[in-house]
């Protein structure tokens, strides 16, 4: 496959966006242990190229749905980070009005459909959103993200079958970080090249080196164009790695430090930084300016969240059921 040439502006955008994701998540981790963020918290650190590579390929009306490692997916669709941080704090200014928390980032105007806590639950939902788009005759594409653990769920097969049968415009994106919590891909099935599952349904599929944002972009561009032209779904297996544990309380003793270091040596942000400097797209001073800008944005996210109020008690029953007099609700 021919490698796309990327402009200076694209590299600068990737660097800034990926650095923002990394710094945002690092801060979220710190705030968690200081108990500003409670409950569950799954960080995206190490996997940034997957989100950044999608940013440069989709349009405003496209849909995004993912599982619970979902803090940065709203950024793909242009949600301002401070609203995600406020959601992590459980504040009323959060994307889900402070009632969703870490695992439930929704933004209807941005067409971000969550944030789902049930492993693999978002796979048929993603196919359903794509069905709605096809039914309405739009050419909007749905990006449906899942982890390597979710791939072992039965719902995946029914969703793949129907998506293929009805030629739904959905890109199924496996974020394969090698471990379903602490269980390695090798221990969950004989099929360890996850993209080959598409073959069972004649779904076009490909593996992608997701430590490279360029590779992610090129793969996404092909897959999104395929969907947009009405040719049906596409499966991409993003081979990535998370540097932190599965969640905040995971000491990650199931893997070696050497393995983690091996992946950190291929860090997607570092790679883009090297390109920026080598091709003289940016000077050291310009890079420093971006780093400072990103730190300021994250500081602003925290300040905004600290200063926002918690939801009012009257919000408790709102947005739970569409039917207002649903029998379970007693005032």
């Amino acid at each position: 496959m021919a490698k796309t040439k990327f402009s200076k502006e694209t590299y600068l955008m990737w660097y800034e966006q990926m650095l923002l994701m990394r710094k945002f998540e690092e801060r979220a981790g710190q705030l968690y242990i200081q108990q500003k963020i409670r409950g569950f918290c799954h960080l995206y650190i190490g996997q940034e190229a997957i989100a950044a590579g999608a940013m440069s390929t989709i349009k405003a009306d496209d849909n995004v749905i993912t599982a619970y490692r979902d803090h940065v997916h709203p950024f793909i669709k242009g949600v301002e980070p401070k609203y995600v941080m406020a959601e992590l704090f459980g504040k009323s200014t959060g994307v889900s009005k402070g009632k969703g928390g870490s695992m439930h980032m929704f933004s209807q105007p941005h067409r971000v459909f969550g944030g789902h806590g049930i492993v693999g639950g978002q796979i048929p939902l993603g196919a359903g959103i794509a069905f709605a788009e096809k039914y309405k005759g739009t050419n909007n594409v749905t990006l449906c993200y899942m982890g390597d653990g979710a791939v072992r769920q039965g719902a995946l097969h029914e969703a793949f079958n129907m998506a293929m049968l009805w030629k739904l415009p959905v890109v199924f994106i496996i974020e394969n970080n090698n471990y379903a919590m602490g269980t390695s891909v090798e221990r969950t099935s004989n099929v360890i090249e996850l993209y080959t599952l598409g073959e069972s349904y004649d779904m076009p599929a490909a593996p992608v080196n997701a430590m490279s944002v360029e590779a992610v972009h090129d793969a996404m561009e092909i897959a999104v164009a395929h969907c947009r032209e009405g040719k049906g779904p596409y499966l991409l297996e993003m081979k990535t790695y998370r540097y932190r544990g599965h969640s905040m309380s995971d000491p990650a003793k199931y893997r070696t430090k050497e393995e983690v270091e091996e992946y950190k040596a291929q860090d997607p942000i570092q790679r883009v930084l090297t390109t920026l400097l080598e091709k003289k797209y940016a000077s050291e001073a310009q890079v420093e300016a971006i780093n400072e800008k990103v730190n300021l944005i994250v500081d602003e996210c925290v300040k905004f969240s600290e200063e926002s109020p918690f939801p009012d008690a009257s919000e408790l029953y709102k947005d739970v059921y569409a039917q207002e007099d649903y029998p379970f609700i007693r005032e």
């Binding site: 602490g182 891909v185 003793k253 199931y254």
Partner: peptide, 15 residues
Amino acid sequence: TAEVKAQPAAESKPA
């Protein structure tokens, strides 16, 4: 949870 033995994952390089 802390006792799961570290597994060498030499075969799982993305490249």
